[in-house]
Write a protein that binds this DNA or RNA. Structure first.
Lengths: 215, 215, 215, 215
DNA sequence: CATGAATGAGAATTCATTCAT
DNA sequence: TATGAATGAATTCTCATTCAT
């Protein structure tokens, strides 16, 4: 159609955008290369020229979105602050980004994880990074509270897993309800809900750790 | 091959079992009617005779598994006990059932939600039911603690959502780690983790509600 | 279209016939599964159901035609006769069969040999068989003529190769000239031409072998 | 990359060389213009600028290789010598050239003949020329032997066909056996094999022609 | 002169679905 | 009741060919 010459990077971004939107809504199998090409406004061969195959295209989507999400979380944290403030910042960054990029989030959380090993593994890398980061915050909070970090180590990791899972779930829920269901919750509110939900559990754990005799 | 005359209901169950296993592992699109028929040990036309189409078959799977899960949760609760005990019972029932029926859980949580509106809606019904049930428990706890139920209503619902989301996430995580990762966590431990994580948050909320002046 | 139920073997033969005709005329790459299915009067999926892939289909064609040609040659020979008579019979069988099955011959000689290793290897088996058979006849003729078989062994094999090559070439030539060029030569004449061409060379060789001092 | 200004003719030769190598190894269909351009070290549009289309490119390859082969045969013959010496010279030239230019030979003999009418026709011109030349030699030999040329005319043509076919077949066989099979036969040996094989047949024919009463 | 960027057309293969028995 | 046989409709991917610079 439009034989417009467009710089490589722009074209590639157009294609990835279209792919993320399509994969995010339909899933890997149901998405067709035809559909993606059309949405990107390019011909199918061009799509293949840039991204080689459906599999590689999907992988490229996952990587791009994972990197963007990680950057959003990292960038929202001020490393000099208290663990609690850092967690708050990270959560806010997380919910803001996922709310702003629902298709990207769907690709990562909904689709990539249900489409078989190689893809799920890509996401696991991201996830492990987040879990470790949160666990680090919890450990710092433990130190600040005068607990033996080694003592609470295992439980801290479990809690970090639970928190990340809860965050994913909330992000999914917040983004999932489409226009119909009235207003979408603000990222700030979602973050507050989760903080209120989770932080007391952590403090209770630390309290127990300071009072020997309880497990 | 086995020309055994089998009663209608048994046949149907065989087919649904095969379908749940196949859909749960491969997803809706990647699963083939051929594969399901073969796994069920019946011919494809018979599969169509009983279940009409791939779409209806998938829907039937979702409904059956959703009902089974709801029954498992409901059945594990003793309506006469305290909210905390009731929640504990429900969580235990939930984690036990999902651990025992990983394919069914995968169909509900992983596949149905990623395969487009009509199917996701089926699951949402189940989910809403659970959320409301949990919210009811929280409201009861609020009353028991002498709080104004109306006052905490909104927050209680948000918390219920978070808890259900966390439970789903934990169930998925507990079932997801295959043999490699050593032993799978016991449902009881998973439930305990979540209780420890979540209950303090609720109590903190109630405490705030009793002490006017804080949001 | 015609949803006629046809016995398996008949269907398979229809498909192979169509495939041989198509591959023989267009070559492996230029032939399309669509075209073959249409010529066979079946749908493409059925073609795949029976023959799995283009590659397997081509292999099946080669094998069937190779077996048929080998049978035609073998069946035209009376094992009790003199080498010269046996060779005559074999050639006659060969030229008769190739003239009667030009597409099969084209598949074997023209297409299979130019379509890469795995296919060429199939034909080589046939070809080696024929060469060895002819070499055996030559050796028998040598013994009858009182020559030391071991002495002429190597030359006999080279001659056999040349003869088979000449036969292939003549068959191709005889079958290649289409209607335009007037009448096609009779297999008997082709066989006679080759006998006249080749037998004196063999006899000359044997004569040299009986008169030591020549190489 | 190499922005060297290269004279037109050299460029064209580079392209034809690449095309011959590619077509000879892969065949017309399996060869891609992309591959040829890359092997030639030029861009695809340039390839099209010089040679217009895949079809024309293939035709140009055939013509160039056919001319080269004809020249090699013609140039190896001393027109003043006896028919037998001339035939020997021609065969030697033929086998030497085909051994030195395996890709060109593959294009002519293997690929062009299996890729449909228009291309096969190009080769037929070459082939007919060779056959007529050989038939002329045979006729001269007949005259030298005191035979009535008209009498043996038809048989002489058939023999010429057989000889050319045998030569082609031997060239193909000699060039086909790759490194594995040890040393490749020398052109001189191949020519000798064919001379030994063919000349006695011709002499026998002439002998019969001088002795009326035999057919 | 030379090319990077782009596309229309087609090919192999798979799948949900349905007759005819 | 139950099925072996059959197909229409996609889907992924490739290739010859051509603008725009």
């Amino acid at each position: 159609m439009t034989r417009r010459r467009v710089p490589k990077e722009v074209r590639e971004r157009q294609m990835l955008d279209a792919a993320v939107a399509t994969f995010g809504r339909l899933g890997y199998r149901a998405a067709s290369m035809d559909g993606i090409a059309e949405r990107a406004g390019v011909s199918k061969p061009l799509l293949y020229l840039y991204l080689n195959s459906k599999e590689e295209l999907f992988t490229a989507c996952i990587r791009r979105e994972a990197a963007a999400l990680a950057a959003a979380v990292t960038g929202a944290v001020d490393a000099g602050e208290s663990p609690e403030r850092q967690l708050w910042g990270g959560l806010l960054g997380f919910f803001t980004h996922t709310a702003d990029h629902p298709d990207g989030w769907a690709v990562l959380y909904r689709q990539a994880r249900t489409t078989g090993r190689p893809f799920a593994a890509e996401v696991d890398v991201l996830r492990e990074g987040l879990v470790e980061y949160v666990a680090g915050l919890f450990a710092a909070a433990a130190r600040d509270a005068g607990c033996d970090a080694a003592l609470v180590g295992r439980e801290v990791t479990a809690l970090a897993h639970a928190l990340v899972g809860a965050a994913e779930s909330l992000a999914d829920w917040a983004g999932g309800a489409p226009p119909a269901s009235g207003e979408r919750p603000e990222p700030k509110d979602t973050a507050a809900t989760l903080m209120d939900f989770a932080w007391p559990g952590l403090e209770a754990l630390l309290a127990r750790a300071r009072t020997p005799g309880t497990t």
